[in-house]
Computed example of a mutant assay.
Amino acid sequence: MSGDEPDELLARLRAYEGRAAAVSCVGKDRVNLPMIRHWCEAMGDTNPAYEGPEAVAPATMLQAWTMGGLSGNETRTAAFDELSALLDEAGCISIVATDCEQEYLRPLRPGDEITFDTVIETVSERKTTKLGSGYFITTRTDMRVGSRLAGTHRFRMLKYAPHAPARAKRNTPRPRRPRPVVNRDNAGFWEGVDRHELLIQRCTGCGTLRHPWLPGCNSCGCLDWDTVRASGEGTVYSYVVMHHPPFPAFDPPYAVALVELAEGVRMVSNVVGVPYDKVRVGLPVRVEFRRYDDESTAGSEGAGGVQGDGVLLPVFRAAEGEA
């Protein structure tokens, strides 16, 4: 326990450990093929196990069957709201999801009705993070089909008091953007970026295009591949607007899009050339290569190769006249 943490507050918080946050809830929809299809289309998962009369649901959909939607779950208890209010009183007024863990115990099939209970499992000691100081709260949701446990979902969040904004120091260099992780599986993609080429992997066994780059084909399992140079044309398939707390090298809010290329594969990148609140599904975009963090070309577009500490990244510019 940190030295400045009141023993009394931690004791009051931990009194909620083991208390139910939701009891005898029933999923709003039974496991069903349309939801499975939507999930697989969004994930680009073409596994035949998720289709037809013997279909099973992707294991990673486990939480989807318990989501309450905008109306929530009617059988939720007051325990979590009370815990949250107690932390608000202590100055921990912000909250962020940090991670989750899932355990899959049996396959789910269309027609299965999911019931579930949620418990407040643990409340941590007060922790100091880059966002601020506060408490990690872990909930555990047990999901069942009939009397059989189908899976467990642990969800962890940080309820914290934000740090006071730091005053900017004069002549402090702007933090660098995080560098992409380059490995033997995706090195060819980044070599293409250095040449201002957007390369897509193509399976030489069945011809399937894929992105991100992988060591083998999801469709036929073939390990051999070559590349296709993308035209760079695409449309916004989906997007989010990032409103996270200030983070080095980034200035929220900004738009991050899942772009569907003309060749049919999808990739994630930033949308530029249009205000974040003007990005929309179906917006035509075209790839451009933008250099970051290199003082000689900071913010420039079309600067190839790696120079100094700069990093060249593919981003997507809204088509002229679409802003």
Rank of each mutant, 00 (worst) to 15 (best):
C220W: 14
W213F: 15
L199E: 06
G216H: 06
A187G: 08
L209S: 00
R202T: 09
G192D: 05
L214H: 05
T208D: 07
P215F: 15
V228Y: 01
N218Q: 13
L214Y: 09
D194M: 07
T208Y: 01
N218V: 15
C222E: 09
E197D: 11
H196A: 12
E191L: 10
E197H: 08
F189M: 08
R195I: 03
N186W: 11
H211N: 03
E191S: 10
W225C: 07
R195S: 05
S219D: 12
G192M: 07
D194H: 00
C203H: 01
C206H: 04
G221H: 02
N183W: 14
W190L: 10
G207V: 07
G192I: 03
W190T: 04
R202L: 11
W190E: 11
T204Y: 04
L209E: 02
H196K: 04
R202A: 10
V228G: 04
L199W: 11
W190C: 08
R184P: 00
S219T: 15
R202G: 06
G192H: 01
T227E: 09
L214G: 07
H211E: 03
D226K: 06
T227I: 08
S219A: 15
P215D: 15
S219V: 15
L198H: 04
V193A: 06
L223W: 07
D226T: 13
W213H: 14
C220H: 10
G221I: 09
T208K: 04
N218F: 14
C220D: 13
L199Y: 02
L199R: 15
H211K: 02
D185I: 13
